[in-house]
Simulated scan of single mutants.
Amino acid sequence: MLNIVSILIGLLSLVIVIPSQIPLLGWGNWLALPLVVVGIAIGALSKSDSGRNFCLIIFAVAVVRLLLGGGVL
């Protein structure tokens, strides 16, 4: 059950992260990062690793985008 919750949180944050890849919308990644961290924590409590791994991938995409944009853009 926790794995499904983690995947749903990951999908919600993915909806935020995808448009944030457009220049000048990078601030959306700052909104998605806390949500992704919650998904990672819930996924870590689950027996299965798929939800946690999905959230980790989304987290990596958001962090790389923030690093490339200087943290703001």
Rank of each mutant, 00 (worst) to 15 (best):
5 V>G: 07
26 G>V: 06
36 V>E: 00
15 V>R: 03
71 G>L: 05
25 L>E: 09
67 L>D: 08
21 Q>V: 02
8 L>E: 15
60 A>R: 02
18 I>R: 02
55 C>H: 05
42 I>L: 15
41 A>K: 10
52 R>M: 15
43 G>N: 10
42 I>S: 07
69 G>R: 09
44 A>F: 15
39 G>H: 01
64 V>N: 07
13 S>C: 15
53 N>A: 09
12 L>Y: 03
30 W>C: 01
29 N>W: 00
71 G>A: 06
15 V>W: 02
12 L>H: 01
62 A>L: 08
6 S>E: 06
40 I>Y: 03
34 P>C: 03
65 R>M: 09
14 L>K: 01
42 I>M: 13
18 I>C: 04
19 P>L: 05
4 I>R: 15
39 G>L: 07
39 G>W: 00
40 I>C: 14
57 I>W: 09
30 W>R: 02
61 V>C: 10
10 G>D: 06
12 L>Q: 04
9 I>A: 06
7 I>E: 02
53 N>R: 13
4 I>G: 12
37 V>S: 13
12 L>D: 03
25 L>I: 03
2 L>V: 06
35 L>E: 00
36 V>Q: 00
45 L>R: 14
55 C>A: 13
50 S>N: 13
35 L>I: 09
58 I>P: 00
1 M>T: 09
65 R>L: 10
56 L>V: 07
21 Q>C: 06
46 S>D: 15
41 A>P: 02
8 L>I: 13
47 K>N: 13
71 G>E: 03
73 L>K: 05
37 V>E: 04
23 P>F: 09
9 I>C: 06
9 I>N: 00
51 G>Q: 01
55 C>N: 15
19 P>K: 06
22 I>P: 04
54 F>C: 03
62 A>C: 14
71 G>W: 03
33 L>E: 00
46 S>C: 11
18 I>W: 04
43 G>E: 06
54 F>E: 00
9 I>Y: 00
63 V>E: 11
25 L>C: 10
10 G>M: 06
63 V>N: 12
39 G>S: 08
3 N>V: 08
51 G>P: 11
58 I>F: 05
